[in-house]
């Protein structure tokens, strides 16, 4: 366990080392924040509420969505791709740790440091410029926290599965970007699914994506009731089980493929 804690800690320290990078990354997120919130404000101009969501709720949703995007950083697919391509993966397998555990510990490290150096400045900025993004109630917040953690796991597993493809193709190209684009649209991070046409909403309910962003955000702004939130948490957990199973199965095969390639 201490080995994983070490990876976790190291990642926090390295992400904090590059101050200028942190500053510009936050600035990029701030641009997204401003653009999204002003867009929603323009859309809501002269309109009370749409789909039972008020302008205030939508703005909180948009702010939190940008913050989530900044915090839940999943590098596993790029890390895996890089280590396979550069051949580091061979020595990684010799290390006395579970590789997936190492990747997870590192991504948790990035996320924890992002909570401090990204979420805090973004929430401050949003509070000054627009409105403090407060949850609709304390219960909602208490339900939001576990849902957010489940979201992280979902995003991470998805990234890990895509990253494992590099064991076969070696050149991942922009598969990662394709995945990110799909997640951005179907997760509700850009625009909530309730604005989609009905049939797409139905399809989306059976896909894992909307449980990555929309579920925790809807709980936070009170778009769904507490009992619905309970169901949503259960669905998140179920999807984690499914994706974890797929990831495990693919990983077992991936290991074998690497061995065949040899030195």
């Amino acid at each position: 366990m201490s080995a994983y804690y070490y990876f976790f800690k190291m990642r926090i320290l390295t992400t904090l080392a590059y101050r200028f990078e942190v500053f510009t990354a936050v600035a990029s997120n701030a641009v997204m924040l401003l653009a999204t919130v002003f867009l929603w404000k323009a859309a809501y101009r002269g309109i009370g509420s749409v789909q039972e969501v008020s302008q205030h709720q939508m703005i909180v949703y948009a702010i939190l969505s940008v913050v989530m995007g900044a915090v839940l950083s999943v590098n596993v697919q790029d890390d895996m791709y890089y280590r396979v391509r550069e051949g580091h993966i061979a020595t990684d397998f010799i290390k006395p740790v579970q590789l997936l555990g190492m990747f997870l510990a590192e991504d948790l490290g990035t996320t924890v440091s992002a909570l401090v150096n990204r979420a805090v400045p973004l929430i401050l900025l949003a509070s000054i410029l627009f409105t403090p993004p407060l949850p609709v109630s304390l219960t909602a917040f208490l339900l939001f926290v576990p849902s957010l953690m489940l979201s992280f796991l979902l995003l991470w597993l998805m990234g890990a599965i895509v990253g494992m493809i590099s064991f076969w193709v070696l050149e991942l190209g922009n598969l990662g970007i394709v995945k990110d684009a799909i997640v951005r649209i179907l997760s509700g991070s850009l625009i909530p699914i309730w604005f989609f046409p009905d049939w797409m909403g139905t399809v989306s309910a059976y896909l894992p994506f909307q449980y990555m962003y929309q579920t925790p955000l809807s709980i936070y702004i009170g778009k769904i009731t507490h009992s619905q939130a309970g169901t949503a948490l259960a669905i998140q957990a179920a999807w984690i089980a499914v994706l974890a199973f797929i990831a495990y199965a693919v990983w077992q095969r991936a290991k074998r493929v690497t061995l065949i390639q040899g030195g």
Binding site: L39, A42, A43, Y44, I47, V50, Q51, I191, F195
Partner: peptide
Amino acid sequence: LMVEQFQAL
């Protein structure tokens, strides 16, 4: 989608 929900931007 946004314009459909909000008439105009």
